[in-house]
Design a binder for these strands. Sequence first.
DNA 1: CAAATATATGAATACCTATTCATATATACT
DNA 2: AGTATATATGAATAGGTATTCATATATTTG
Lengths: 110, 110
Amino acid sequence: MKTPKVEKFGSEEDVVQLADLFRLMGDASRLRIIVSCLGDPISVGDIAAQLDLSQSLVSHHLRLLRAARVLKAERRGKQMFYSACDAHIDCVITDMMAHVGEPLDIEESD
Amino acid sequence: MKTPKVEKFGSEEDVVQLADLFRLMGDASRLRIIVSCLGDPISVGDIAAQLDLSQSLVSHHLRLLRAARVLKAERRGKQMFYSACDAHIDCVITDMMAHVGEPLDIEESD
DNA sequence: CAAATATATGAATACCTATTCATATATACT
DNA sequence: AGTATATATGAATAGGTATTCATATATTTG
């Protein structure tokens, strides 16, 4: 039996939760911040400097990303270091880049 | 020199393009529409009926998804059938669901 | 304690977008 | 031709949101 319906999601809440995560990655500044945190934990100031974004903006975005459990924070002295909560976000980004790199398949139906 | 260790993206345009794709998936209605199109091609009317969305709304979303090369359209008589452009979108959604299903790594025990 | 540094937060705003309603266009059928 | 069906599109709007500026909070050090 072929895939019946949209049983990909368990519930409606799953869809909303997934969409929320995608929306968080759907902003260029935020996506850059996420990528900055994929390696070793990095401080807020370093993120801002590296991406040339205001400290305030970075902090606002980090709060959203932390609330959505995309990133986690850890204090080291005066600084806060952020890193990814798990490795799946990295996978998602990698997959999406593969999609972007996909050659356009115009019409090959023949 | 400006060599951020964020070498994940080739260029700034890549980030924007990726973010655009994530933003498209960041709306619950649109995400449902995408998932509806992951299997066999499906008509606009069937998507609307299946997801209980207005025909107009579905059509508006489909236009965006088609423009972003997430979905492709094919005419069959009076109807238009939509399906995914490639398999990566499916991978991305699957990965993200794994992320959602990830256990919280904070101290929740005890 | 006070000063300096690092980060967070609140408010204001300008922009964006999801949705609806009405209407246009395309295709099939008689 | 005209009618019915399926989809697309334009305009309007309500709600959302990314960004900036100013300020507050936390932490270390003198």
